[in-house]
């Protein structure tokens, strides 16, 4: 079994790498060249000489670079392809809509076109996003909810999501979308709200910071744990037939709830530290985001395990250890 992962240096990519290596896969990751070698989420595997160069391989390419992508894919001949890469920050997609579209929408299309020409065609999983629903009129959302994005990121993901479905149906390929609701972890990037909060709670606890600046904290999200989500992605490709699945917890919490859980965990009252900063407001906020993952539960036997309170504790503990280690 041989898998290619795009976005392997990201949160989900690193968890998926661990999962697949544990199952005996040979894992090939695609990485962008950068003068700063920042791959902290993969460092423990890359520096392990029994893994790197033997079971795990990294290749330089870019979602905008068709020829080098094709060369790598043809050489590796993967049995499964996990496409997790993209410009994944929603707020930023308003500032850089063109490169978001280029990477997230066109990047996916390029890969679909390359895979389509392979024989046999590998199974393909696209990490889609609940952002494709934008502000949905029905709640909770399931696989039949109409697509109605309200950010450049959501629009790009909607394009990619629909193309995966079109390639599946018109070419009869095993191509699937995992429509993921928010999923967090200690490996979340530091400019996403949950990680920003867990880091702030840890820093304030250690006396390294005085306040927590955030935008609107009344917004609600359906937040799960990333390590569990990648397990579901793998299971999607082990099914007898290809299908799209919603991955979610089915529970809605506000940003304020998460702040409370995180600060409670270190014995602090969040109200003493939180301050509203309008700079972090998004031009539009998605509403009514709540996923219905009952299809995944029925067909994949998958259900989320970690509660948001447990997740917040997990993240704060990690950040405390990180800061003490510096």
């Amino acid at each position: 079994m041989r898998a290619i992962i795009t976005g392997i240096t990201g949160q989900d990519g690193s968890y998926l790498t661990e999962l697949l290596l544990g199952k005996g896969y040979e894992v090939h990751g695609i990485v962008r060249r950068s003068s700063t070698m920042q791959r902290p989420r993969l460092d423990h595997q890359v520096h392990d000489q029994s893994i790197y160069g033997k079971k795990l391989f990294l290749h330089y390419s870019d979602l905008t670079d068709t020829t080098s992508l094709r060369r790598i894919i043809q050489r590796v001949e993967p049995t499964e392809f996990y496409h997790l890469a993209g410009q994944s920050h929603v707020g930023l997609s308003f500032d850089i809509p063109e490169s978001t579209c280029e990477l997230t929408a066109m990047g996916t299309l390029r890969i679909l076109e390359i895979l389509r020409d392979l024989s046999p065609t590998p199974k393909f999983l696209h990490a889609s996003s609940r952002e494709i629903f934008g502000t949905p009129t029905q709640s909770p959302q399931d696989e039949s909810t109409p697509v109605n994005p309200n950010s450049p990121y959501g629009a790009a993901k909607a394009f990619a999501n629909q193309l995966v479905k079109i390639y599946r149906e018109s070419h009869g390929l095993f191509f699937c979308n995992a429509i993921c609701f928010n999923h967090e972890s200690p490996r979340r990037a530091e400019n996403f709200v949950t990680r920003k909060i867990s880091l702030a709670a840890a820093k304030i606890k250690l006396g390294l910071q005085n306040e927590l600046l955030l935008g609107n904290i009344d917004t609600h999200r359906d937040w799960g744990f990333a390590a569990e989500f990648v397990e579901a992605m793998w299971r999607i490709l082990q099914q007898p037939s290809p299908k799209d699945f919603i991955l979610a917890t089915g529970q809605s919490h506000s940003v304020q709830d998460f702040i409370q859980f995180a600060f409670q965990h270190v014995g602090l009252n969040w109200k003493d530290y939180y301050r509203l900063d309008p700079r972090f407001h998004r031009p539009t906020e998605p509403q009514n985001l709540l996923g219905n993952a009952s299809l995944a539960e029925r067909e994949l036997g998958w259900k989320h395990q970690t509660s948001l309170q447990q997740l917040a504790a997990l993240m704060v503990d990690h950040d405390l250890a990180l800061l003490k280690n510096l």
Partner: peptide, 11 residues
């Protein structure tokens, strides 16, 4: 700066 999920501003 290019957006990346891992921060590249070490220098």
């Amino acid at each position: 700066v290019r957006r990346s999920s891992s921060f590249s501003t070490g220098r």
